[in-house]
Design a protein around this nucleic acid. Structure first.
Length: 501
RNA sequence: GAUCCGGUAGCUCAGCUGGUAGAGCAUUUGACUUUUAAUCAAAGGGUCCCGGGUUCGAACCCCGGCCGGAUCACCA
């Protein structure tokens, strides 16, 4: 904590007559970025504002949202008369790392060639009472005293963002990713929509929900686990293409790939199928890679991943045969069970045919798919909302894109046969009765919507956090969420409370 | 939920076999008005995560707990 009292600082400011420059003057005025390409000649009347980030002799660093700029604050030169100069010299001595100041002066290039603002006017704008961790980088690019403790970084993201430029860059990339997708979909004429987060029935995925209660209606509501069923209602309503960036909530385990709240984009387009959607995904994610990183080739961990079209496509059976040498396409449940055992895939007795196939794939194939790859044609048991395959018995028209060993999207030709959909829900209910707590619940209103008729539709869901991890080369979902979920800090009981009321 | 690792100054970390709590940066004061992580000098700064236990003596050993990370499990 700074020993300099805040009141002292404020008093100083109020007596120094430095309010002449209004705050408005710093809003929307020049930032540091335009000056980084500065040449040799001086450039007058430059005004910037930001955090004071330390001083050595007359040279100081100012940091704003674009980066850092050097200031030259020579004693006795800031201000128009001696009184002001003397006050400013005192103010400079009182500055603390993290304080906000506004400065005005002329730009010049120092002996070492660094673009520097020679400060002629100085305005105090805000006080920092806490010591920011000082991260320094030397000529070789080595980082000293980095602010690295993950717990502190996540709990105090504001500090992380101030002192770790790579962190803010990752979040800027995340936003670019959203913008890129919006631009792509809007250009195709699809409508960005919003649907309920509080839902009386949770559907569209298999997951345990968060449950809450509405007082006035006196009813249970769930935080959505997906928005699929609502977007399809909109397709029934006549929109040709709708999408939503959807914050979804799943009351399940946490890991470096799972946060209880996360974001998916879901897209539904009428009169299309999953083949068409595969092409859209390739085109869109290639663009996203370029828009976020300037290239289709991204270094992710140890892997160089190339989003350039076209991507490899495997059916799930082909993928399993490719990685295990076993053709399971004609096997019944008992043969699949034997095969899983032979491959040392952990299984249990409750697993049906579809689950066994999915398990073999997940265990033997998924992690080995590094380059973006489409896996198509999933078992019908795993996909109660997907349309049955037009030629392959027991399968649905579904694909996932796998990248860096993880699923990044899921898509199918949507089931638009209301009778089939009712049967699928009913078999989900059967699974539920047999103890599958992930089985979907039957949504009568959704079925009613389908009964009015839904055009053939292609649907897509992309895990935005997973995609952001790839696009920013992040190892944990926490690195692409500003405020990842954490347990509360344990606080010592304040003394006032300990003394009683 | 399981296993492993970690928690010491604002930050990054040392701390040996259990024996007075340490460094660098940051902060404060003074000098310096210069450059480019780190000028010099001095000073201040600690619930060693919490609670028990063992011991003459615990940051260190033991037990329990809290928080975090990794891996696994779970999660289509």
């Amino acid at each position: 904590m700074a020993s300099l009292g805040l009141s002292e600082e404020v008093k100083f400011k109020s007596t120094s007559g430095k309010d002449a420059m209004s705050l408005i003057d710093f809003v929307g005025t020049l930032r540091t970025a335009p000056f980084q390409e500065f040449g040799k000649e001086q450039r007058p009347d430059v005004r910037i504002a930001g955090r004071f980030m330390g001083q050595r002799g007359p040279f100081a660093k100012l940091q704003d949202s674009d980066g850092k700029m050097q200031l030259y604050m020579k004693k006795g030169t800031i201000g128009t008369d001696e009184t002001e100069q003397s006050l400013n010299d005192s103010l400079v001595k009182l500055l603390h790392i993290g304080d906000f100041i506004g400065v005005e002066g002329f730009l010049f290039s120092t002996q070492t060639g660094e673009v520097t603002l020679h400060v002629q006017k100085l305005t105090f704008l805000g006080k920092s009472l806490r010591n920011l961790p000082i991260v320094k980088t030397d000529k070789e690019g080595n980082v000293h005293d980095a602010f690295t403790d993950p717990e502190l970084r996540y709990r105090q993201r504001y500090v992380d963002l101030v002192v770790n430029p790579h962190v803010r860059e990752a979040f800027i990339k995340r936003t670019k990713m959203y913008n890129s997708i919006r631009e792509f979909l809007n250009e195709k004429g699809y409508l960005e929509v919003e649907t309920p987060i509080l839902q009386p029935l949770y559907g569209g995925a298999a997951a345990r929900p968060f449950k809450t209660h509405h007082n006035t209606l006196d009813m249970t509501l769930y935080l959505r686990i997906a928005n699929e069923l609502y977007l399809k209602r909109l397709i029934v309503g006549g929109f040709d293409g709708v999408y939503e960036f959807s914050k979804d909530f799943r009351n399940e385990g946490m890991s470096r790939f799972h946060n209880p709240e996360f974001t998916q984009i879901e897209l539904y387009v009428a009169y299309k199928d999953y083949e068409w959607m595969m092409n859209l995904v390739e085109e869109m994610l290639e663009k996203v890679a370029i828009d976020t990183n300037g290239t289709t080739k991204l270094q992710v961990g140890d892997n160089l991943i190339d989003f350039k079209r076209p991507w490899k496509r495997f059916s799930m059976y082909e993928a399993i045969e490719h990685f295990t040498g076993i053709d399971i396409s004609e096997m019944d449940e008992n043969e699949l069970r034997a095969t899983a055992k032979q491959l040392h895939v952990p299984i249990d007795e409750s697993m049906g045919k579809g689950k066994l196939i999915d398990e073999i794939f997940g265990e033997k194939c998924e992690a080995q798919l590094i380059q973006p790859t489409f896996i198509t044609d999933y078992p019908v048991e795993m996909s109660p909302l997907a349309k049955k395959h037009r030629t392959k018995e027991g399968l649905v028209e579904r694909f996932e894109a796998i990248c860096n060993g993880k699923e990044i999207c899921n898509s199918f030709s949507e089931l638009n046969d209301p009778i089939d959909q009712r049967e699928r829900f009913e078999s989900q209910l059967e699974l539920g009765k047999r103890g599958d707590d992930e089985a979907m619940v039957l949504d009568e209103d959704f079925l009613r919507a389908l009964e009015y008729g839904m055009p053939p539709t292609a649907g897509l869901g992309i895990g935005m956090d997973r995609l952001a991890m790839v696009m920013t080369n992040s190892n944990s979902i926490q690195d692409v969420l500003f405020f990842p979920q954490m347990k509360p800090e344990s606080k010592p009981v304040p003394e006032a409370e300990a003394e009683g009321e």
